[in-house]
Amino acid sequence: METTLAQHIVTDLPQVTALGIIIKAIIILAVISAIAGFGTYIERKVLAFMQRRLGPMHVGPFGLLQIAADGIKLFTKEDIIPQNANKFIFMIAPIITAATAFIALSSVPVFPDFTIPEFIPLLGGVFVPSIASDLNIGILFVLGMMAAGLYGPLLAGMSQANKWGIIGAARTAVQFLSYEVVTGLSILAPIMLVGSLSFVDFNNYQQEGVLSWMIWQQPVAFVLFLIAGFAETNRTPFDLLEHEAEVVSGYATEYSGMRWGMFFIGEYANMITISIIASIVFLGGYDSASMFGWLTIMLKIAFFFFLMLWVRAAWPHVRPDQLMWLCWKVLMPLALVNILITAIVMMV
C-alpha cells in the first residue's frame, strides 16, 4: 500500500509546495467559516420547519442576509471581560476551541485538489492539494485535535468566575471522560480492517461500489461512532455544556461578541469535521476516479449535517450522569465486543 501510494503521488500529482498548502489553509479557513455561518441559517430554518415555523424571514430574501446581520452584530458587540475572571485564560479559551477545530480540518480531505491556472499572476501553476497535510496518522490526529478542543470550554468555564460557567466546565469534563473512549474504540475496528490511519487509504478501501462501504461491515461501529460524534460536537441529545434550560449558557455564559462567536464557529467546524470523518470512514468517501466523486461526498457530509439538526429537533437531551452511564456501561462494552468479533473474523 505504502509504495503504491507513493508512486501514485510521484507519477500522477504535481509537487505539493508550501505555497499550495498556505493557499489551501486560507481556503479552508474562509470556506469553513462561511459554511459555519451558513450552517446557523440552515439550522434555524430546518428547526423552524420541523416545528411548523418559518424561521428568519425579514433580512433579505427568505432571511438569507440574517447571516450577515448576525456577523455584523457579533463583530461590533462589546467584548466584556468579567471583573473577577482570570483574564488571560478567559481571553484565550475561545481561540483554543476555534483553532483546534480548524487544525483538525487541516488533515481531512476538503474539496478536490486543483492547480491554479497559469494566467493568474504570482500564484499561477501552484498545485493546491485536497488535504492540507496528508498525515499517515490522519484519523488519530483529527480525533486528538478535536479532543484537545474541549480545553476551550473547560478553561472558559473555570476562568470566568461564574457558577454556571463552573457547572459547564464540570460537565465538559464529564462529557470528555465519557465519549472519548467510545470514539477511539468504535473507530478501531474499521482501522483494523483497513490497516491504516490515513483517510486516503480508507477512501481507497471502499471504492468498489456501495456494497464495499464500511457501514455494511461495521454497522455497530458506525452507530457507536455517530453517537460519540454527537457527544464530541456537543449536539443534542448530548448538549450538556450549554443547555439553556439548565445552566443558562454553561461555559459560554459570560462571553459576548466575537469571543462567543469563536466558540460557535468552532462548534460548527467540528460538526463538519465529524460529518467528513463519518462519510469517509463509513460511507465510502469520495470517488477519486469519477467526476462526481466530490459531489457525492458533499451530499454525504450534508446528510450528516442535516442529521444533527434533525436529531436536535426530535430528541430530548440526556443528563450528564446518563451520558456517563451510557458511554461506559453500554457503548464501551459494545465497542469492545465489536473489536473482538472483528479481530476473530479477520484471523479466521
Binding site: 420547519f49 420541523m50 411548523r52 434533525w310 429537533a313 426530535a314
Partner: peptide, 18 residues
C-alpha cells in the same frame, strides 16, 4: 420521533402548513 418532525417539515414545505 425523527419521523414526526420530518413529517412536519414536509407538511410545512410542501403543503405550506405553517
Amino acid at each position: 420521533g425523527l419521523w414526526v418532525v420530518m413529517r412536519e417539515m414536509i407538511n410545512t414545505l410542501v403543503k405550506g402548513d405553517v
